[in-house]
Amino acid sequence: MNTIVTSKEAILRVCRELVSENGLLALNMRTVAQRCNVALGSLYNYFPSKNDLTLAAIESVWQDIFHMDHSCRIGDTFPDYVQWIFESVQPGMTEYPNFFTAHSISFASNEKDKARQTMEHYFQHMKIGMCHALESDIHVRSDAFDATFTQTDFVDFTLSGLLSLLMQHRSNCSVLLEIIRRTIY
Rank of each mutant, 00 (worst) to 15 (best):
F86D: 02
K114P: 01
E95S: 07
E135S: 14
S136W: 05
Y122T: 01
P91E: 01
P79A: 01
M68P: 07
R170P: 12
Y185I: 13
Y122E: 03
G41N: 15
I74M: 14
T3R: 02
G41V: 14
N37M: 15
L53P: 06
I180F: 05
I58S: 04
F149Q: 12
C131N: 13
L159D: 05
D146L: 09
E120K: 05
L24S: 02
L40P: 15
F145S: 05
D69E: 11
S136T: 07
C36K: 15
K114I: 11
T150Y: 01
N110G: 04
V175K: 07
D76C: 07
I58F: 10
D69M: 08
N28A: 01
F157Y: 13
V32E: 08
K114Y: 04
L159A: 08
F149A: 14
V38S: 13
Y46F: 15
Q168L: 14
H103W: 02
I4C: 00
Y81W: 11
E111T: 00
G161H: 09
L27K: 01
M130K: 02
D156R: 09
K112Q: 06
F123M: 08
Y185E: 11
M68G: 12
Q90N: 07
H125V: 05
I11K: 00
T150V: 10
M29S: 10
I184N: 09
I180K: 02
C15R: 00
A147P: 11
Y81E: 04
T183M: 05
A108N: 04
V5S: 00
A57V: 03
D80P: 03
S174Y: 07
N51V: 13
N28M: 07
T101P: 01
S109Y: 02
G75W: 09
D146E: 09
S7Y: 00
A57Q: 02
L165N: 06
L134R: 08
V61L: 13
Q117H: 04
T54E: 02
L162F: 11
D80H: 03
A147T: 15
S109M: 04
E95L: 10
M93P: 05
C131W: 07
I4K: 01
L159T: 06
F107D: 00
R73S: 11
S160E: 03
S106Q: 02
F86S: 00
N172V: 09
L134W: 11
A102Q: 04
D69C: 12
F99D: 01
Q63P: 10
E111N: 02
F86A: 01
V32K: 06
L166G: 10
I128N: 08
Q124F: 10
C72R: 11
M29D: 06
M119G: 06
P48N: 15
F100G: 07
Y122F: 14
I128T: 12
H139M: 14
D153K: 08
S109R: 06
G75H: 09
E111F: 04
L12T: 00
D52N: 10
T94S: 13
D64R: 05
E95C: 12
T101A: 04
N172Y: 07
S171Q: 11
I65M: 12
F107Y: 01
E95T: 12
I138T: 13
T152D: 14
C131V: 10
R30D: 08
N22Y: 05
A147I: 15
F100M: 09
L55Q: 07
I180A: 02
